[in-house]
Lab assay of single mutants.
Amino acid sequence: MDTYKLILNGKTLKGETTTEAVDAATAEKVFKHYANEHGVHGHWTYDPETKTFTSTE
């Protein structure tokens, strides 16, 4: 398992979190669920070199 990072740049919520996942697709599902639960619906990007997802509203 690898550690993946999420950076949230929402209108009402900003911050970072991490998750352990078997691959990027699994981490993306976890992070999108997390963002949706916190009302963040933004544009998603992923940097495979740093294993970092960013959601920007």
Score class of each variant (00 low, 15 high):
Met1Glu: 08
Met1Asp: 05
Met1Thr: 12
Met1Val: 12
Met1Ser: 09
Asp2Gly: 09
Asp2Ala: 13
Asp2Met: 13
Asp2Phe: 13
Asp2Cys: 14
Asp2Glu: 14
Asp2Arg: 09
Thr3Glu: 08
Thr3Lys: 08
Thr3Leu: 11
Thr3Asn: 05
Tyr4Lys: 01
Tyr4Ser: 02
Tyr4Leu: 02
Tyr4Ala: 02
Tyr4His: 02
Tyr4Pro: 02
Tyr4Thr: 02
Tyr4Asn: 02
Tyr4Glu: 02
Lys5Asp: 03
Leu6Lys: 00
Leu6Pro: 02
Leu6Ala: 03
Leu6Asn: 02
Ile7Asn: 03
Ile7Asp: 03
Ile7Ser: 03
Ile7Arg: 04
Ile7Gly: 01
Leu8Val: 08
Leu8Ser: 02
Leu8Ile: 12
Leu8Glu: 02
Leu8His: 04
Leu8Met: 11
Asn9Phe: 11
Asn9Trp: 12
Asn9Gln: 09
Asn9Tyr: 12
Gly10Cys: 08
Gly10Pro: 02
Gly10Val: 04
Gly10Asp: 04
Lys11Asp: 10
Lys11Cys: 15
Lys11Ala: 14
Thr12Pro: 03
Thr12Phe: 15
Thr12His: 14
Thr12Gln: 10
Thr12Glu: 12
Leu13Pro: 04
Leu13Tyr: 15
Leu13Asn: 08
Lys14Ala: 08
Lys14Arg: 12
Lys14Cys: 14
Lys14His: 12
Lys14Met: 09
Gly15Cys: 15
Gly15Phe: 15
Gly15Lys: 14
Glu16Thr: 12
Glu16Lys: 06
Glu16Val: 12
Glu16Pro: 03
Glu16Asp: 05
Thr17Arg: 10
Thr17Phe: 15
Thr17Leu: 15
Thr18Asp: 04
Thr18Glu: 09
Thr18Lys: 07
Thr18Leu: 08
Thr19Val: 14
Thr19Phe: 11
Thr19Trp: 07
Thr19Cys: 15
Thr19Arg: 04
Glu20Phe: 12
Glu20Tyr: 12
Glu20Ile: 14
Glu20Leu: 15
Ala21Pro: 00
Ala21Tyr: 01
Ala21Gln: 06
Val22Thr: 11
Val22Gln: 12
Val22His: 11
Asp23Trp: 00
Asp23Tyr: 02
Ala24Ile: 09
Ala24Val: 11
Ala25Asp: 10
Ala25Glu: 13
Ala25Tyr: 10
Thr26Ser: 13
Thr26Phe: 07
Thr26Trp: 07
Ala27Ile: 01
Ala27Cys: 02
Ala27Glu: 00
Glu28His: 10
Glu28Phe: 15
Glu28Lys: 07
Lys29Asp: 08
Lys29Phe: 08
Lys29Trp: 07
Val30Ser: 06
Val30Lys: 08
Val30Glu: 09
Val30Met: 10
Val30Asp: 05
Phe31Met: 03
Phe31Asp: 01
Phe31Pro: 00
Lys32Thr: 06
Lys32Ala: 06
Lys32Ser: 05
Lys32Trp: 10
His33Ser: 12
His33Glu: 15
Tyr34Glu: 02
Tyr34Phe: 10
Tyr34Thr: 03
Tyr34Arg: 01
Tyr34Gly: 01
Ala35Val: 08
Asn36Thr: 13
Asn36Ile: 13
Asn36Glu: 15
Glu37Gly: 07
Glu37Cys: 12
Glu37Gln: 13
Glu37Thr: 12
Glu37Phe: 11
Glu37Tyr: 10
Glu37Met: 14
Glu37Lys: 11
His38Cys: 11
His38Phe: 12
His38Tyr: 10
Gly39Phe: 06
Val40Ala: 05
Val40Asn: 04
Val40Asp: 04
Val40Gly: 03
His41Asn: 12
His41Ser: 10
His41Ala: 09
His41Pro: 04
His41Leu: 10
His43Arg: 10
His43Asn: 12
His43Ser: 13
His43Phe: 14
Trp44Glu: 01
Trp44Ile: 06
Thr45Trp: 07
Thr45Asn: 08
Thr45Met: 08
Thr45Cys: 10
Thr45Ile: 07
Thr45Pro: 01
Tyr46His: 00
Tyr46Ile: 00
Tyr46Trp: 03
Asp47Trp: 04
Asp47Gln: 06
Asp47His: 06
Pro48Glu: 12
Pro48Gln: 09
Glu49Phe: 11
Glu49Ala: 13
Glu49Asp: 14
Glu49Gly: 11
Glu49Trp: 10
Thr50Pro: 00
Thr50Leu: 07
Thr50Asn: 08
Thr50Ala: 06
Thr50Gln: 06
Lys51Asp: 01
Lys51Arg: 13
Lys51Phe: 08
Lys51His: 07
Lys51Pro: 00
Thr52Arg: 01
Thr52Lys: 02
Thr52Val: 07
Thr52His: 01
Thr52Met: 03
Thr52Gly: 00
Thr52Trp: 01
Phe53Gln: 00
Phe53Met: 01
Thr54Gln: 06
Thr54Asp: 03
Ser55Glu: 05
Ser55Asp: 05
Thr56Pro: 03
Thr56Lys: 06
Thr56Leu: 07
Thr56Val: 09
Glu57Met: 05
Glu57Gly: 04
Glu57Gln: 06
Glu57Ala: 05
Glu57Val: 06
Glu57Arg: 02
